[in-house]
């Protein structure tokens, strides 16, 4: 079933703030326009946070449900993109916790390498590929901190809150992640 509500075309160039207001008032077409506009970014971000594409898509789906429920309370509609990214981060961390509590082996860093997408071979040897490899080698908790900071734009305090750890631990993990990543990127060069 595809919902191609007639207003969707009219909404194509509507600013985020207006779409957020309409979605907050219950306009499904406006919400879908926002989801289409920011969906690929949410999905890419989720894949960087999760260990498999399937899990990442579950996280995006849960994030959209949360977003629809809460968008009426969003104060600054112009900030909807950052707000969506924060929801993805929270849902991803929740999903990670659930998985651990279900007794699965904790995140396997080496599985991450399969996450990014189908075009890996095309960019083999590029800086992107080198960074992808370096990220895959990081311990999970360091990688998460780095992704939340670099792609989520979260502050130390926000990351600490998201992950339920101290801001000092966040700083430490980020420092270790950056040291490793910088070193590996230099070796690649």
């Amino acid at each position: 079933m595809t919902r191609s509500n007639p207003p969707a075309g009219r909404l194509a160039d509507a600013p985020d703030a207006l779409l957020a207001e309409r979605a907050g008032d219950g306009d499904v077409a406006a919400f879908e326009t926002l989801a289409r506009r920011h969906g690929p970014l949410m999905r890419a971000y989720s894949r960087r946070l999760m260990s498999s594409p399937a899990e990442a898509d579950d996280v995006v789906q849960e994030s959209l449900i949360t977003a629809w429920k809460e968008i009426g309370d969003l104060r600054d509609g112009a900030a909807v993109k950052a707000w969506l990214m924060r929801i993805v981060a929270h849902r991803a961390v929740d999903a990670g916790r659930r998985r651990k509590s279900h007794g699965n082996i904790a995140d396997h860093p080496e599985a991450i390498d399969k996450a990014p997408g189908p075009e890996q071979s095309a960019v083999a040897g590029s800086a992107s590929q080198a960074l992808r490899r370096a990220l895959a080698g990081l311990p999970d908790e360091q990688r998460r901190c780095w992704v939340l900071k670099e792609y989520g734009g979260q502050s130390y305090e926000e990351i600490a809150q998201t992950l339920g750890i101290s801001a000092t631990s966040v700083r430490g993990r980020l420092a270790r992640a950056r040291t490793t990543l910088v070193t590996e990127m230099e070796e690649w060069r």
Binding site: P40, L41, R43, A44, Y45, R47, R48, P116, G117, P118, E119, V123, A127, S128, A130, L131, R132, E150, Y151, R178, L181, V182, M185, R189
Partner: peptide, 18 residues
């Protein structure tokens, strides 16, 4: 350079997903 590579990686990911 790490920051630049990070942005490029995300762009690559978003482009390939799009």
């Amino acid at each position: 350079s790490l920051h630049t590579a990070a942005l490029n990686l995300m762009d690559d990911d978003v482009a390939s997903l799009s």
